[in-house]
């Protein structure tokens, strides 16, 4: 249920995102999800890719600062109330969400979450019969 996500430190300068994607592209890495968190000075690129360890080593070889971080993923109908429900389950248990992003496939939202405690989050969401996705689920989408 734990999904490996790549986090890459990026300076805010033009062309850096292109550099990352070109490096990954050179080895035919596929990307399921991508988001950029940015401040005025720097950004963190977060991506879920087909072969996270290979992608990490590839990026490291190309002098990027990259880490594998663990996230979880939930599939729910793409109405706001379902996203709210997921978050409420977690907040009721004092599990904080460090960040979240989502994308929609047909009528479903694919929600990515990084929680203060991912394992507790998984158990809680399972208990409420939420549909948790594995890495391979994500790549079948």
């Amino acid at each position: 249920m734990i999904i490996q996500q790549l986090s890459i430190f990026l300076e805010n300068k033009s062309g850096r995102l292109t550099d990352v994607l070109e490096v990954l592209g050179s080895e035919n890495i596929r990307i399921t999800a991508l988001t950029v968190a940015d401040t005025a000075e720097f950004g963190i690129l977060r991506i879920i890719v087909s072969e996270p360890e290979k992608a990490r080593d590839l990026l490291k070889r190309n002098a990027f600062t990259v880490n594998i971080t663990e996230v979880i993923s939930v599939s729910a109908p793409n109405e706001a109330k379902h996203y709210a429900k997921v978050l409420k389950i977690l907040s009721d248990l004092n599990i904080s969400v460090e960040y979240t992003y989502a994308f929609s496939v047909e009528e479903r939202s694919i929600i990515i979450l990084r929680c203060s405690n991912n394992h507790e989050a998984i158990n809680a969401l399972k208990k409420h019969e939420m549909e948790l996705l594995t890495s391979s689920d994500l790549f079948r989408i």
Binding site: Q5, S7, F9, T39, I44, R46, Y99
Partner: peptide, 18 residues
């Protein structure tokens, strides 16, 4: 330069380091 081993994917941690 950020030390690679200490790079966190949380903005808040990088910001607090800064």
């Amino acid at each position: 330069e950020v030390e690679e081993e200490f790079f966190q994917d949380k903005i808040s941690e990088l910001e607090s380091l800064r």
